[in-house]
């Protein structure tokens, strides 16, 4: 019970202090809207909205979660308020889950902003919503844990932003969000399959357009595996680097 009180407090404080601030809300709305509009203007065809939707959703989650978590944790470490959390009588696992849950929720909300836009512009009937929600959740989890991995690896806020971009921008092009993995040069394809977002985007493609090419169960398993590995690795790093 005591652990849950601490967990909820950390989560609510982060949501209120960081994620639900006007700049982040507007980013969450403007970013997917701008990408959707860009493709819409390019194609001039409402049908294509549904084709680009999985990519825009995946990108919204990726950009919404990674940098937010990396920046907020780095910021709290700089102001030393993170030390207060480390010295609290809650386990490191619970603490880091509380810190990351805010980003996961933010990522899930971000993912559905383009869905709301798309609903006004195209027909979304036939979408497998259960698989979509599952895919969105796991993309948010792995992206958030990638953000945690970045936060543990840097010490300055600007480093967190730079390091986030180092991962994110290549992923936009390598993970099949807008360019199918199969059409990428052969030497880049192994890299694509090594990145978790490839599997997340493929789940969304399958559930929205039935255009994915990887078994959803395999993608779900791999995403869950990536999440566990990134979280475990980050916890190990925190124990080694932050509790000196």
């Amino acid at each position: 019970m005591k652990t849950w009180i601490a967990f909820w407090s950390i989560l609510l404080k982060d949501m209120k202090n960081y994620y639900l601030k006007p700049p982040n809300i507007s980013w969450g709305i403007i970013f997917p809207f701008a990408w959707t509009l860009m493709f819409f203007l390019k194609t001039q065809n409402p049908i294509d909205i549904r084709e680009i939707l999985p990519g825009v959703m995946a990108m919204s989650i990726l950009f919404g979660t990674t940098s937010m978590l990396a920046v907020t944790i780095t910021f709290e470490r700089r102001s030393r308020s993170f030390e207060r959390l480390l010295m609290a009588p809650i386990s490191l696992n619970t603490l880091m889950l509380a810190k990351t849950t805010g980003a996961i929720v933010f990522g899930v909300i971000n993912a559905f902003v383009p869905v709301v836009f798309a609903a006004f512009m195209t027909d979304l009937s036939g979408v497998n919503w259960v698989t979509t929600i599952g895919g969105v959740f796991l993309i948010a989890v792995t992206s958030t844990f990638l953000g945690l991995f970045i936060a543990v690896s840097v010490s300055e806020v600007f480093e967190a932003q730079t390091f986030s971009n180092f991962f994110r921008f290549p992923m936009v092009f390598l993970c099949g969000l807008f360019i199918p993995v199969q059409t990428l040069p052969a030497f880049l394809q192994p890299l694509s399959y090594a990145l978790p977002l490839t599997y997340g985007a493929d789940i969304l493609k399958t559930s929205i357009n039935s255009s994915g090419f990887i078994q959803p169960l395999l993608s779900f398993s791999l995403l869950a595996g990536y999440g566990l590995v990134l979280f475990g690795f980050s916890l190990k790093n925190i124990k080694n680097k932050w509790i000196h």
């Binding site: 019970m1 601490a6 407090s9 950390i10 404080k13 202090n17 207060r84 009588p89």
Partner: peptide, 15 residues
């Protein structure tokens, strides 16, 4: 956070 919010948050860390 304000003063009251800070104190309440710290208290919640102890359950």
């Amino acid at each position: 956070l304000d003063g009251f919010g800070n104190l309440c948050f710290c208290a919640s860390l102890y359950g």
